[in-house]
Simulated scan of single mutants.
Amino acid sequence: MSVPTPPSGLVARLPPPPGEQMRPFLEATAVCLTRHGLSRCSMTDIAREMGVSRSTVYRQLGSVEEAAWLLLSRDLHAFYKTLPDMFAGAHGPEVIIRPLSALLHQAWANPVLVKVLRDEPDFVGRALTSHIGPMLDQGAQMMAPLYRDLMDAGSIRRQDPTALAHWLLRIFMMLTIAPPPADVDRLLEDMLLPVLTP
């Protein structure tokens, strides 16, 4: 039974990846966000880190928040490129559990996210209450076609793919904010295998 590859439509629905010319701006943004946090980082900080004028940074990034979204887009596109290898060696529900685990480990190791979650709970709360609904809807629309393909291939149990996507995104977001005390791979298997096994 073949496992479908991640559909090209999935990456097409992501924000476009920043071009190579943006790399030094994003690297400087990552350094400054890790140092100052999102609410305290300024365009002046990024310009100083790069050794360029503030107007140059404004022209390229627009704002600190826009720069943070560009960083996220870059990381999501980089993660997407790793999915075919994960899918190649996965069987059954592993095609969902492996990428979910890998993305959690990547999130927990991201210094910008670690800084924001640790030092800016008020910002995290505002961001979640303001944007959580649209973010979940958009993520579910992106993932549902992939889950439908996995169901058609017999890799996971047939169910409503959009509802499954919403549920998995909520699990991911909660685990990102509050990492479990136990091994996450074991936790995901215990939680998800009964729901996903055909």
Rank of each mutant, 00 (worst) to 15 (best):
L100K: 06
P121G: 00
A127V: 11
V116N: 12
M86I: 09
P18G: 06
W167P: 05
A178C: 13
D160L: 11
L26V: 02
S8C: 10
G9M: 04
L61A: 03
V112A: 01
G92H: 04
Y147W: 02
M86G: 05
L61D: 00
L83K: 07
P84F: 07
A178V: 14
S130F: 07
Q60F: 09
T44V: 12
V57R: 11
V52E: 03
L169V: 02
A140Y: 08
V31T: 13
A163N: 02
Y58L: 13
E27C: 07
L83T: 08
A163T: 01
P181A: 03
G133V: 15
Y80K: 04
Y58H: 11
P179S: 05
D137C: 08
F123G: 07
L169Q: 03
L196H: 05
A153Q: 08
P180W: 06
R23T: 14
L76P: 11
L169R: 01
R54K: 05
L76D: 10
M135W: 15
L188S: 00
R35L: 05
T34Q: 06
M43C: 03
R13L: 08
A28R: 01
L104I: 00
E27V: 13
P145S: 07
L188N: 02
M22V: 05
L70G: 11
Y147N: 01
L10N: 07
T44Q: 14
